[in-house]
Amino acid sequence: MQAHVDKDTCIGCGVCPSVCPDVFEMDDDGKAKEIVESVPESAADTAKEAADSCPVNAITVE
């Protein structure tokens, strides 16, 4: 399973790293980024929750 943040869509609200810090963090540009190449199985549910919580739907988890 992989997570991806669309930087053009991201508004930098910070919800995803607060929900799933094992997969997401805020970058120097104020936008979210994924910090793992593959989502660990232990973080799969929270990564999906972070994607669902994104107010602009900038995150895909597949």
Rank of each mutant, 00 (worst) to 15 (best):
C10V: 06
S53Y: 14
C10N: 07
K33G: 07
P55A: 05
A58T: 06
D45R: 00
V56Y: 08
S38I: 11
S18E: 15
C10Q: 04
A47P: 07
D29K: 06
S38E: 15
D22K: 11
V15S: 04
S42V: 15
I11M: 05
T9F: 05
C54D: 08
F24I: 00
S53T: 11
C16E: 08
A32G: 09
P17K: 10
H4Q: 09
D8R: 13
S42W: 15
S42G: 06
V15L: 05
V36W: 13
E62K: 05
A32T: 06
A32P: 00
G30H: 13
P55Q: 07
A51Y: 01
K7S: 14
F24A: 00
D45N: 02
A50V: 01
D22E: 15
G14Q: 07
V19E: 12
D27H: 02
A44V: 11
V61R: 01
A51S: 13
Q2F: 13
V23S: 07
G12L: 00
A43K: 04
V61S: 03
V61D: 07
P21Q: 09
E41Y: 06
D45A: 07
E49I: 02
E41W: 05
G14L: 01
S18L: 08
P17T: 14
S38N: 13
P40N: 09
A50L: 04
C16P: 08
E41P: 01
T9P: 07
H4E: 12
K31Y: 12
A58K: 05
K7H: 13
S38Q: 09
A58F: 03
D29A: 11
E41L: 05
S18N: 14
S42H: 14
F24C: 02
A3R: 06
A51E: 11
C54E: 09
E37P: 07
E49Y: 00
D29Y: 05
V56T: 12
I35K: 13
E49G: 03
C20P: 10
A50I: 02
F24P: 00
A47Y: 04
S42T: 13
V19Y: 12
K7G: 07
D6S: 12
E62G: 09
I35Q: 08
A51R: 01
V56N: 07
D29W: 04
V15M: 02
C54R: 11
P17A: 12
E37Q: 14
V56F: 08
C13I: 06
T46E: 09
V23R: 05
M1V: 13
E41S: 14
D45G: 00
D22I: 05
A32S: 13
H4R: 11
K31H: 15
V5E: 03
G14A: 06
A58R: 04
G30F: 12
T9H: 10
K31Q: 15
K33H: 12
D27R: 02
V5D: 10
C20G: 08
I11N: 03
V23K: 04
E37V: 04
G14T: 04
C20V: 09
D6Q: 08
V36F: 15
I59S: 02
K7C: 03
K31R: 15
N57V: 08
A58W: 02
M26R: 01
E25Y: 02
E62L: 08
E25V: 00
V15F: 00
